[in-house]
C-alpha cells in the first residue's frame, strides 16, 4: 500500500473551522447540522474519488452488494462518517450520547489487574467515542494517534480524555516508542490501531470478508513478545444520538504453549474474525478510505 494512496488519518479543516464547528454545536440543533451535511456529502464524494471508489469496491466486492446498492451505500457510508466526525465535535461542545455497553466487563476486569494490556482499535465505527466511554480510574490508557492532528482537535481530545485517565501519544518519529515502552512496563493500557500500517512496513496476512488483507505486525508483535492480554474495541453508531461500545478478548489460555510467531498469527486471526463479525452487522461503518484489499 503506497503512502499516497492512504488516507492521512487527520481531521480535515483549519483551526478556525474547527472552532466555528464546536461553536455551532453549542447553539444549533444536531438535526439541522446533519441535514446540512447530507447536502454536502455528494459534493465531497465527487471531489474525493479515491475514498469513494475504495468504499464502492469494498461494498461491491467484499460485501457482495450489487452496483446500485453499493453506490447508494457509498453515500450512506460517507454520511455516517461525517456524522461520526460531527458527533466528535458535538462531544467537545458538551453534548451527550446514549451508549449501550457490550462486553465492557472484559475491559474492566483487565483494567483491575496489575499487568497492562493492549486494546486494538480500528477505523470502523467511531473509535474516538470509545475513549469517552471507557473510564480507567485504576490504570492509565495510552492511545496511539496519527501525528499531525490539528491543534483544536488535539487540545479538545486531550481535555476530554484526560477526565477518563486517557493520554494521547502521537506516533511521530521514534520518541513515542519510548513512552509506549514505559507505559507497558508500568502496567498501563495501550490502545493502538490494528488495521493500518504506520511506523513499520512489516505486516501480517489475514482474511477479512473472504479476501486476504495486510494488517500491521506491530501491535501483535508487542502483545506476543510481552505476553500481554489483548482486546479489540469498537464503538458503533446505532442511532441519531446513540452508540454501542463493544469489547472482545482476543488472547486465550491455549496461547501459552505457542511460539511468538504462532501467537502473533493467532491473535491476528482472532482480530480479523472480530472485524468480520462487526462488518457483517455494520457494513456501512467501514472508514478505511483506501484500497484495503489488494
Amino acid at each position: 500500500m503506497s503512502e499516497e494512496r492512504q488516507w492521512s488519518g487527520k481531521t480535515d479543516g483549519t483551526l478556525w473551522m474547527h472552532k466555528a464547528l464546536i461553536g455551532c454545536f453549542k447553539f444549533l440543533p444536531m438535526a439541522l447540522l446533519y441535514f446540512f451535511m447530507a447536502l454536502v456529502v455528494p459534493f465531497y464524494m465527487l471531489f474525493n474519488h479515491q475514498g469513494y471508489l475504495s468504499i464502492y469496491h469494498y461494498l461491491h466486492q467484499r460485501q457482495g452488494w450489487g452496483p446500485l446498492k453499493a453506490f447508494g451505500g457509498c453515500y450512506v457510508n460517507h454520511f455516517l462518517f461525517g456524522a461520526s466526525l460531527m458527533d466528535r465535535f458535538a462531544s467537545y461542545a458538551g453534548r451527550k450520547f446514549r451508549v449501550k455497553k457490550t462486553g465492557l466487563e472484559v475491559f474492566d476486569n483487565l483494567a483491575g489487574q496489575e499487568q497492562g494490556f493492549i486494546m486494538l482499535s480500528s477505523h470502523i465505527g467511531n473509535s474516538e467515542m470509545s475513549g469517552y466511554m471507557l473510564s480507567t480510574p485504576l490504570k492509565r490508557m495510552n492511545a496511539i494517534t496519527f501525528p499531525g492532528e490539528k491543534a483544536t482537535v488535539r487540545s479538545n481530545l486531550d481535555r476530554m480524555l484526560e477526565v477518563n485517565n486517557i493520554r494521547l501519544i502521537s506516533a511521530d518519529g521514534l520518541d513515542w516508542l519510548f513512552t509506549l515502552n514505559a507505559a507497558l512496563s508500568d502496567g498501563e493500557i495501550v490502545s493502538i490501531h490494528a488495521d493500518r500500517l504506520f511506523g513499520s512496513s512489516k505486516a501480517l496476512k489475514v482474511k477479512i470478508l473472504g479476501a486476504e488483507a495486510q494488517i500491521p505486525m506491530g501491535p501483535f508483535n508487542l502483545a506476543a513478545t510481552r505476553c500481554l492480554p489483548v482486546t479489540a474495541g469498537f464503538c458503533m453508531k446505532t442511532g441519531f444520538k446513540s452508540y454501542e461500545a463493544l469489547q472482545y478478548r482476543l488472547d486465550t489460555p491455549e496461547m501459552e504453549t505457542m511460539s511468538k510467531t504462532e501467537k502473533m498469527d493467532y491473535l491476528a486471526a482472532r482480530y480479523a474474525a472480530t472485524v468480520n463479525a462487526i462488518l457483517e452487522k455494520w457494513p456501512l461503518q467501514w472508514y478505511n478510505f483506501f484500497e484495503f484489499w489488494k
Binding site: W176, L177, F178, N181, S185, M217
Partner: peptide, 27 residues
Amino acid sequence: DSIDALELMLLMEKNYGIRLSNPAEGK
C-alpha cells in the same frame, strides 16, 4: 524499524534491568 526498537527496549529491560523511557537518552 519501530517494531525492532520496541524489541530492543524489551531486550535491555529483560537482560540488563535497564528501562528506557526518556526518548532523548534512548536515541
